[in-house]
Design a protein around this nucleic acid. Structure first.
Lengths: 154, 154
DNA sequence: ATAAGTGCAAAGAGTTTGCATGTTC
DNA sequence: GAACATGCAAACTCTTTGCACTTAT
C-alpha cells in the first residue's frame, strides 16, 4: 500500500464523516507515515514544527491523532511513561511490544500461538475480543549486558 | 498469608528504607487488602474518608500507593480510562485482564501456556523479562448479549 | 452563507511536589 | 532535636475544550 493510497483512504474516512482533508491533516498524515518509530503527540508536534516554518497547533495535532486512530491508521500504546505513544498501522501487521525498563527501547514481536491462546481464553469465558495489548517489560540485549557487568562490579 | 503477616512484611519493607509504619500507612494497607477489586487512588481516598471521620490526604494516599507498589504489595494497571487502577498482590497469583469496552468490567484470567510463550518470545530475542502486562479488550458475556440485540433491532 | 477547521489559551484530569506543621524516637 | 510524615495547596504533565477567527465550497 503506497502513500497515495493511504492518503485516499484517509480522505475517504474523513469524507464518510463529512470532514475534509485539510493541509494540516495532510501534513500530519505524511509525517506519521514517514516514520516507523513510535512517537508521542509532543514529538510529532516538534517534527512538524521543524519540517516547515508553518506551525500546526497542538490542538490540531491531538485532534488529528484521534481521527487517525479512529480510522485505524494509527494505534496507540501506553508504554508507562506518561505519554501515549502512536505508531502507524498500514503495512504493519499486528504485533506486541517488548519495552526495555532501562533505555526505553521498544521492540516489536509477533507470536501466532499467543494470539490464538488469547482468543481461546476470551472465548472460553464468554467474551468477544475487539483488540488486545501485550507488553513485555524487561531488559534488552544491550542493557542486560550493562546491568550484569554493573552487578558483578559491585 | 494472613493480615498480620502482611502488616509485618510491609513494616519490614518500610524499615529497610528507614521509614515507619504510621497510622495512615497502616489504615491504607488494611483498606487495600480488605478489597479484592481493582481500585483507583481516588476510590481509595473515598473509602478512607468513609471508614472513619479522620481524613487521610490525597498526597498521603498517593505516596503510600507508591510505597506499596515498590514493595510488591500492589500492582497497578492502566485499563485505559485515565486513572491508574491498583490491586493487591499477596494471595493473588499473577494474572492478566479482560476489560469490557462497554461496562468497564474487569475479569482476571491466567493461562500458563501464554506465560511460557511470552518468556520464550523474549528469550529468543535476547531479552530478560521482569514483568508483563496483557490486556484483552472486548465485550463481556452480558454486554455482548445487549450489543447483539441492539444490532438486530436497528 | 454555511459548515467545518484552526489556533490560542484556558480548563481538565490525574498525579506529584514544596513547604510549614506535626509526630516519633 | 533530628529525621521522617502529614496535609494543604500549588505545580505539573498530558490532553481536551470553548471560542473567535479563518477557510473552503
Amino acid at each position: 500500500m503506497n502513500h497515495s493510497t493511504i492518503r485516499k483512504a484517509f480522505e475517504s474516512h474523513l469524507r464518510g464523516r463529512n470532514l475534509k482533508l485539510t493541509p494540516q491533516r495532510g501534513r500530519i498524515l505524511d509525517r506519521v507515515f514517514a516514520t516507523h518509530d513510535h512517537f508521542s503527540a509532543e514529538t510529532l508536534y516538534g517534527w512538524l514544527k521543524q519540517d516547515t516554518g508553518a506551525n500546526i497547533s497542538r490542538a490540531t495535532v491531538y485532534r488529528t491523532l484521534s481521527l487517525l486512530e479512529e480510522g485505524g491508521f494509527l494505534e496507540s500504546l501506553d508504554a508507562g511513561q506518561g505519554e501515549r505513544l502512536y505508531e502507524h498501522v498500514l503495512g504493519h501487521r499486528h504485533h506486541d511490544h517488548l519495552i526495555c525498563i532501562d533505555c526505553e527501547r521498544i521492540e516489536e514481536f509477533y507470536d501466532e500461538r499467543i494470539e490464538k491462546l488469547q482468543e481461546l481464553a476470551a472465548e472460553s469465558r464468554g467474551w468477544t475480543l475487539t483488540h488486545h495489548n501485550l507488553r513485555l517489560f524487561g531488559r534488552c540485549k544491550v542493557c542486560q549486558r550493562k546491568h550484569q557487568s554493573e552487578e558483578s562490579n559491585s
